[in-house]
Design a protein around this nucleic acid. Structure first.
Length: 414
RNA sequence: GGAGAGAUGCCCGAGUCGGCCAAAGGGGGUAGACUGUAAAUCUAUCGGCACAGCCUUCGGAGGUUCAAAUCCUCCUCUCUCCA
């Protein structure tokens, strides 16, 4: 099956209501993807040391391409990261130092290896700092700048939107730099396809245009829809912040819980986008309604966690989730704090213990939690903020605290 | 450089003849009810603490006053228009 159709079917490419693909610069790319092995790239920001769920769609896109035998290039914006892409932003982004970019890149590469196979040149990772930082301004203007019409640039959405709020010349140049990236990859790696988020459309088109002018060759672009949840929130945002893919930032258990709790309306879409399950399987799961949809959510959570954190971690997360929500017990992957035995022997106020466990940012917050009846020790509701927690509550050297329905913390007595 | 506008709690955003303002309203968060670890809805709550009281908040620093987010002075930053 042509990857193009796979991507289309799984929802990576937006379609009109009649099913024809949108956001593809030239439908010829479909035939090319079906008959040749090509090289395609997506650019990533090195602004953070870890990716989050919002980047996942791009990563999966590359993974699918690789599975179909194409060669993905991960372009890290070490050079452009020092400028900051104005697309889709309302304000100028903070700039990074080269050291920060390098450090982030190292970590990002590690993350990529879970989704993409970089062995034997099956995929490449490049840093545009390698060619951007050494650019000579005059030369660049003469060779590249002359191909760009300012009038034309001003009509691009990503620039136009910023005209209202203003953008600096530095940001204005971003489009040239990204176009130059594409040209560079085209020349050096025969990369003919650039993909990216919806907001990259303008930048991608201008890259294609540049390749046409300089090389007189065709290149292509595909963008995927900006992903929002059914409630309209940006994908991968949680109350606590981004849903990071790094296990140190978001534990596999929390990661699993995120997917386990997605809105009913999102389950079908997410199964197609964020798992490698067969579309037949996905279609079957999509039929699940009402209570049964929870089975589909479990599968989504398990598969998504497996891809990001490995099968073992996914199994653990699943088991512990079932335990916590079924039997009200805590498994090993539930967050844990330690406390010394003497403290418990003398008894400790419930509010103090919840605060120590991080189940409230302040004592006042804990107080409100307890007053609203949302705090539990083991399976008992905490009835007073100064309820003494002592050895009576210790089971197997452990006390299980719960805030609300979903937040467990184990207190281990040492 | 010249002329204006503005800076309020997590975000948006009211609030200026000075007190009743820890500050309307919305978003969002949290908890409870309902449920399916969903959505919608309803209820409570969302600065801190030794919590029926006290302390620290309305860009920053001073000042006027019994009393200031609200008045005065200076400073910082942002935006719009003109050159």
């Amino acid at each position: 099956m042509n990857v193009f159709d796979i991507l289309l079917e799984r929802g990576f490419i937006a379609t009109e209501s009649d099913g024809t693909p949108k956001q593809v610069t030239d439908i010829k790319i479909k035939e090319i993807l079906g008959t040749q092995k090509i090289t395609a790239y997506i650019g990533f920001d090195p602004t953070a040391s870890s990716f989050h769920a919002g980047n996942l769609i791009q990563i999966m896109l590359l993974a699918h391409l690789q599975r179909a035998g194409h060669r993905p290039i991960v372009l890290v914006g070490g050079g452009t990261g020092m400028v900051g892409d104005p697309s889709g932003k309302t304000e100028m982004r903070k700039m990074l130092t080269q050291e920060q970019v390098k450090a982030n890149m190292e970590k990002q590469k590690l993350q990529f290896t879970r989704y993409i196979d970089f062995s034997n040149g099956k995929a490449l990772m490049v840093n545009n700092a390698d060619w951007l930082l050494s650019l000579n301004y005059i030369e660049f203007l003469r060779n590249i700048g002359r191909h760009f019409s300012v009038n034309r640039m001003l009509t691009a959405d990503c620039i136009k939107n910023r005209l209202e709020t203003g953008l600096s010349f530095l940001e204005f140049n971003y489009m040239l730099l990204q176009s130059y990236d594409f040209l560079k990859l085209f020349q050096e790696h025969n990369c003919i396809l650039q993909m990216g988020g919806d907001d990259q459309w303008g930048n991608i088109c201008s890259g294609i245009e540049l390749i046409r002018r300089v090389e007189n060759k065709d290149a292509y672009g595909i963008t995927c829809p900006l992903l929002t949840t059914a409630t309209g929130a940006k994908m991968g945002k949680t109350e606590k912040g981004a849903l990071w893919l790094d296990a140190n930032l978001v534990s596999p258990y929390e990661y699993y819980q995120y997917w386990r709790n997605v809105d009913d309306r999102d389950v079908g879409r997410f199964l197609a986008l964020f798992t490698f399950l067969d579309m037949d399987e996905v279609r079957k799961l999509r039929e699940y309604k009402d209570n049964r949809i929870n089975e589909a959510k479990e599968i989504l959570a398990f598969e998504a966690t497996k891809i990001t954190h490995g099968e073992k971690a996914a199994l653990d997360a699943q088991q512990d989730s079932r335990k916590a929500f079924g039997a009200g017990e805590a498994g090993d992957s539930v967050p844990t704090i330690q406390i010394v035995r003497p403290k418990i022997q003398s008894g400790i106020d419930a509010s103090e213990l919840f605060y120590l466990a991080g189940l409230g940012k302040s004592k006042s917050e804990v107080r409100r939690l307890i007053q609203s009846g949302g705090a539990y020790v083991n399976r008992e509701t905490v009835t007073a903020i100064d309820m003494k927690i002592d050895e009576k509550f210790v089971e197997n050297d452990c006390i299980l605290l719960r805030a609300g329905k979903k937040n467990y913390v184990r207190v281990i007595i040492v």
